[in-house]
């Protein structure tokens, strides 16, 4: 449980970091909060030959509302979100979820963008990014692209990010007051990765009918997934306990669960049903 040998770089600017990435590509890895990368190296499951530590680059720890979106820089730590970073449903949802990410010491180091780059299937931020439709701004030496969350997650720990790219910013829509966001997750101990989580967002029209609905599930498949049929079932009517229950049941059946010795598939479905219903109910209760 000691890291294999590696070289260490501490660039002072984003340009320098991108140059290092361009040069070292495959064998280099960005070090952000280190809360996933370092344990993985200690288990020798990751063996980057070089670490490119971005923590000394000034100005990357921002998190600001701008043009209707919340813009999150690569060094904004989890702990930052424990209290709403912006008024409205988006900030509140992030705060609801933040307390479920690991433990306080880990939250003071781990970063929002690091979670998205790492793409653990049970990451709260990944699930929220998919549910709300985050945009991910990716830089490489001499290039830039914007990847929507829907195109970001490819499989377990695998994203659209290329080896020479830096995730330079994640942005989330700042939802208006007509949105109701819900969050629920199940884990066996406080701070553990969730066995299942649901993030829900409903837009209610003036009549109280559901005009838009998004439901994302985390920790239940190789990537966070959208429960589209479940969300669609809620459209056009006022939510009722029965309709929420029915949507939860649809969500529970609409995916291929990951299975392991501790979590059989049918149990994963039980949890999705319960978490989806609780997230939806919770979002409407307040």
């Amino acid at each position: 449980m000691k890291c294999p040998p590696f070289d260490y770089h501490a660039p002072r600017s984003q340009a320098e970091a991108l140059a290092l990435l361009a040069r070292h590509g495959e064998e280099g890895k960005i070090l952000a909060g280190g809360q996933s990368l370092v344990p993985t190296m200690a288990f020798r499951l990751a063996r980057p030959a070089r670490l490119i530590d971005i923590n000394r680059i000034a100005g990357l720890d921002y998190c600001r509302a701008e043009g209707g979106r919340l813009r999150i820089g690569p060094l904004a730590r989890h702990a930052r979100f424990e209290r709403p970073v912006a008024p409205g449903p988006t900030g509140r949802l992030l705060a609801r979820a933040a307390e479920h990410i690991a433990h306080a010491p880990i939250r003071t180091r781990g970063t929002f963008c690091g979670s998205l780059a790492h793409a653990d299937p049970a990451s709260e931020w990944c699930c929220i990014a998919l549910a709300l439709g985050a945009d991910l701004r990716v830089l490489r030496e001499g290039g830039e692209r914007l990847v929507p969350a829907a195109g970001w997650f490819q499989s377990v720990f695998t994203t659209a990010l290329a080896p020479d790219e830096l995730l330079a910013e994640a942005s989330l829509p700042l939802l208006g007051p007509d949105w109701r966001c819900g969050f629920a997750e199940f884990n066996r101990r406080a701070g553990d990765f969730a066995l299942a989580m649901a993030v829900t967002a409903l837009r209610l029209d003036a009549a109280g009918h559901v005009a838009e609905a998004r439901i994302a599930l985390g920790g239940v498949a190789g990537t966070p997934i959208l429960a589209e049929a479940a969300a669609a079932s809620l459209l056009g009517a006022s939510p009722t306990p029965d309709s929420l229950r029915a949507a939860a049941a649809i969500a529970a059946e609409g995916f291929e669960p990951t299975e392991d010795a501790q979590v059989p598939a049918d149990y994963r479905r039980d949890l999705v049903r319960a978490m989806t219903r609780r997230a939806l109910e919770g979002s409407l209760a307040a």
Binding site: F43, R188, R189, A190, G191, D192, F193, A261
Partner: peptide, 15 residues
Amino acid sequence: LTGSLADYLPPSAAE
């Protein structure tokens, strides 16, 4: 299958 404390689950103070 339980080679780390992510899989073998001693309680924390919260439990």
